[in-house]
Design a protein around this nucleic acid. Sequence first.
DNA 1: CAGCAGATTGACT
DNA 2: GTCAATCTGCTGC
Length: 205
Amino acid sequence: MNVARLPECFFLGTDVTEISRALLGNLIFTRIGRRGVTGGMIVETEAYGGVDDRASHAFGGRRTARTEVMYRRGGVAYVYLCYGLHSLLNIVTNREGVPHAVLIRAIEPLRGVDIMLRRRGRRQINYTLSSGPGVVGQALGVDRRHSGISVTGNVIWLESGRPMVSDDICAAPRIGVAYAGADAKRLWRFGLKDNPWVSRPRFCG
DNA sequence: CAGCAGATTGACT
DNA sequence: GTCAATCTGCTGC
């Protein structure tokens, strides 16, 4: 078998920015509903640093029904509703009790493209299919019901893709976190250089 | 309990 | 560039 699934230990590291970068170039898949497998290569992520990060839902140790799954052991999905309508998919990292997470912001579609087009209500394949955290959630078919499920199972899973090196990766401030003060300036948004599937605004011009 | 802002997107001016 | 869609959680009366 050629396919190497990313094991749970991949998500147990203590440096969420390192995992956020390491996820680039790897593949994420879902099998949701009876529609078949959908997914693609992760091309853009953001790291959220938990209790010390003003941009995180878990800043200061906040716990709510929504954010509770972020405190679980790494390797589960954290899916939440943004602006009342978009399901944003994150992968929880670190050990139990440390609410780190990586937001999946964009993928390059590779598998089940017809299914993803249907979920998105589109006919043409272009970056609007899966570029941006809200549309990634919609294209992959995830919603709040998937929050807390494993990302090493048969509903959501990851497989190893093309290995990336530092020169392949761009870092920039995270999107939509201006309220987070000094934490808004952290370069915790990561993307593959020159990849047409990263979300707008683009990296490096 | 009302008001408001938010890890966004797409339609429209 | 502006704005509405509308769930979650925080602030303040």
